[in-house]
Amino acid sequence: MTMRKTDNDDAMIDALLSDVAQEKPVPDTALMARVMADAARAPGLPAPRPKRSVLAQLSDMIGGWPAASGLALAGVVGLWVGVAPPAGIEDVAAGLIGTTETVSLWDDESFFAEEGLIDG
């Protein structure tokens, strides 16, 4: 602040108020830490919610790890049944939906030969 001349009391008050208004203290880290500590323990708030990764949020979407493990088990069983069906599973399928028989609607060899898609 610099020395300044004033003409009357009002001018002095204006100058004083103006000078004090220029004071702009900055909060230090200690004060900020105190304020944040207060925020963390203020009453009536839910427990702080930590930031969650996208993977964790997607996991939440499908119901968390129990649902994910169920999905994984179903996938493994499906793969197993498809690749190496247990004995008798075809009988069960036949009993439920009847026997299946594969019928070709055209002669594969002549069809591909005519189209020129296979050699010979």
């Binding site: 944040m36 925020a39 963390a40 708030l45 839910p46 427990a47 702080p48 919610r49 930031k51």
Partner: peptide, 8 residues
């Protein structure tokens, strides 16, 4: 709602 980053 519990978001501390908002308080910061």
């Amino acid at each position: 709602d519990g978001t501390m980053a908002a308080a910061e």
